[in-house]
């Protein structure tokens, strides 16, 4: 049925090309200083990000609140327009297209390939619309398929997402569902249009422990079946460990370290990543943790000085860090990227 809707997702993606390629991505928000004056200072929410995501791979963005990870996610689904930089995304024909400043029809066309899953399953579903209306929305607004086809597709996808039997859920309202069920609805909505890339913003952080793993596994399984890549945003390194192939650690709008997930967790090189790992509680009283004391707290990157963003809190910073610009994100061997002057090349 519904050839209009269903496509062979796996054949669509060119595996040898990156799915997403971000370079020099910046987003500055003006700090309003008054009603009549023009903003003179800016929050550097995302400042010069560069990364690629290969098809079938998932990248985790990890960091504390205010580090710019959610802004990055919203830039990639174009809920925000970047201040500078390019976001190349693979199109259906395998070309790379810069979507950073798309508008109108081009933007709408792009929305068929990229979707988002939000953090709060209670606020991300319109309370006045049925589950069917919510899940079918991408099809409805893009004018894809007939009503019957949409109903069939929604039913099939709800079934896939573990909401069985789907007839029991289709015409209910969000308030009749539990948090875990709602998040499954949100996953179904993100998948209904067969996207190639999904930004998942803390999709399990508001769910209960016993529900969370089910949703995480569902997301992994569906990603594999439908050939979708995630940008997985989370504050929880332990969750990122299970959901991602690579992790990028962000601090005040900058990516300070990026490596394969297990490599990053077992061999963190940047002092901030080390502190983050040391502070993450371990669900086992028999395992001890190190304690790394970093100074102060996270601040807002309002017109930050050009030096390393982590300078003020860094336990190993020296004059060189103070007098030089923010260090570039460099490969320290084996695809382990670190932005720190004090970290030598691996093995050295």
């Amino acid at each position: 049925m519904a050839e209009a809707i269903q496509q062979d997702v796996k054949a669509r993606v060119h595996r040898d090309k990156p799915l997403v390629e971000v370079s020099g991505l910046k987003k500055y928000f003006p700090v309003s200083s008054g009603i009549f004056s023009r903003a003179s200072s800016f929050v550097h929410a995302v400042d010069d990000l560069n990364f690629t995501i290969m098809p079938g791979q998932s990248l985790g963005l990890v960091g504390e609140s205010g580090c710019g990870k959610t802004t990055t996610g919203k830039l990639l689904v174009r809920l925000h327009e970047p201040t500078a930089g390019s976001i190349l995304m693979q199109t259906e024909d395998g070309d790379m297209e810069d979507i950073a400043h798309h508008k109108g029809t081009a933007l709408r066309q792009f929305r068929r390939r990229t979707q988002m899953i939000f953090q709060d399953p209670y606020e991300s579903l319109n309370p006045r619309r049925t589950i069917f209306d919510t899940v079918a929305e991408p099809l409805t607004v893009q004018g894809i398929g007939t009503l019957t086809e949409r109903q069939e597709r929604v039913a099939a996808l709800l079934n896939e997402c573990g909401l069985t039997p789907p007839e029991q859920f289709m015409y209910r309202f969000p308030h009749e569902l539990s948090g875990g069920q709602r998040q499954r609805v949100a996953i179904a909505r993100a998948l209904i249009i067969d996207p190639m890339f999904i930004v998942a913003d803390e999709p399990t952080s508001m769910l209960d422990v016993s529900i969370r793993i089910g949703v995480m596994q569902l997301m992994s399984n569906l990603a594999e079946r439908f050939g979708v890549s995630y940008l997985y945003i989370t504050h929880d390194l332990a969750v990122a460990r299970y959901m991602t192939d690579q992790i990028g650690v962000m601090y005040l709008g900058k990516m300070v370290e990026r490596a394969d997930t297990e490599e990053l967790l077992s061999n963190p090189l940047h002092p901030y990543t080390q502190a983050l790992l040391a502070a993450t509680p371990v669900p086992d009283p028999r395992l001890s943790r190190d304690f790394i004391n970093i100074k102060g707290g996270i601040s807002k990157p309002v017109d930050p000085p050009p030096r390393c963003r982590f300078y003020a809190r860094c336990p190993i910073a020296d004059e060189f860090c103070r007098d030089n610009p923010h260090p570039p994100l460099e490969d320290k061997g084996g695809g382990h990227y670190v932005a720190c002057y004090k970290v030598g090349v691996a093995g050295a």
């Binding site: 809920l79 929305r111 990229t114 939000f118 953090q119 579903l125 929305e137 607004v141 949100a186």
Partner: peptide, 13 residues
């Protein structure tokens, strides 16, 4: 509310 953003990501005018 996030559901407004979700509608936008879906391609809603």
């Amino acid at each position: 509310k996030p559901f407004i953003e979700a509608a936008r990501v879906a391609g809603g005018s």
